[in-house]
Nucleic acid binder design. Structure first.
Lengths: 168, 168
DNA sequence: GGGCCGCATGAAATTCTGTCACAAAAATTT
DNA sequence: AAATTTTTGTGACAGAATTTCATGCGGCCC
């Protein structure tokens, strides 16, 4: 079910929706790398933040804040919204997560804090992070042409992914 | 090369926040044009839809659905959310309005239903519609490269506008 | 130790955004 | 005129995000 053979940023293709504790090997390794990144930056990846990041990493699709809150429930009580949002704020600051505004949802990122682009499938909702220097450069150019400070963060490009074209 | 002197889509620069009835001449004219466009398309620009469109046209900034609901209140009762959203759905379908997802807000459009790009100021929230064939082309290219069907609709580019750089 | 500061967390309430189901009204078609 | 489709109205509700106040914890300075 791999969309294209391009080896870009891909997050493990395991299926559990809210994998709680059974993070796959790949996720575990990514997590370790991100921990290291945070240490290097002197940013504190606390247990809560780590757990939010882990759930995001395990999910192939963008998750809503309340999905996260449910996924991280304990004793039947789901995590308070504010807690989730605070964790997300931190992760987004660090480039470890991104907000997909068109879906009010969040995905794990790569740690890169520059301009990032996502292909969002309007059918299945899947969001694929792509590294496209070409798009980044063009956007930067347009921004400066119009007197905008190049703070461009995240670019969402809506379309229909290869997989969903077949089905429907 | 579309540099600064491009006469792109600009919406009249009058100031009233919720202009209710005092639409400027320019707005009135635009409205007439859009009415004609709808007639040509056999799309029904009903009074409600027209009023929503009018408020959007009069506002220089993106408005939230509830801003619209308040602006269109009568007898102290604001318009029901669903009514606003239904009107917005119609307008968006017709390309007469766009959703700025990063702000949960809406702006008037030009009627063009192709790919549209906006420069969104992260400071003042202003959204400027730009016609940038270059960006559109680049995005299209990337989309097809990845096997995406080129349905790209609206592109939001975040930054800080010239005006806000001075202030802060 | 005791007090202070910065930071992370917890909890409640509130507001904002958006949708669903169903009924009534209006326009279009036959 | 009757049937059908489209639009609008109403109430309830889920989901998204922020505000406000309180608590706990580690380090630090005296």
């Amino acid at each position: 079910m791999v969309h294209s053979p391009s080896p870009q940023h891909r997050i493990p293709a395991k299926s559990p929706r809210f994998p709680a504790a059974n993070a796959s090997e790949t996720v575990k390794q990514t997590l370790v790398e991100m921990e290291a990144l945070c240490r290097a930056r002197r940013a504190r990846l606390t247990p809560i933040r780590r757990r939010v990041l882990e759930v995001l990493l395990c999910s192939q699709k963008p998750l809503g804040a309340y999905d996260l809150a449910s996924a991280l429930a304990s004793h039947g009580r789901r995590m308070a919204p504010i807690t989730v949002y605070r964790a997300l704020d931190f992760l987004i600051e660090q480039g470890l997560a991104h907000r997909i505004a068109s879906r009010n949802a969040y995905v794990a990122g790569t740690g890169n804090r520059g301009t990032t682009a996502f292909l969002v499938c309007e059918s299945c909702g899947d969001a694929t992070e792509i590294a496209s220097p070409e798009v980044a450069a063009t956007v930067l150019k347009v921004l400066t042409e119009r007197g905008y400070q190049p703070h461009a963060r995240i670019l969402e490009i809506t379309g229909r992914c290869a997989h969903c074209q077949d089905i429907h």
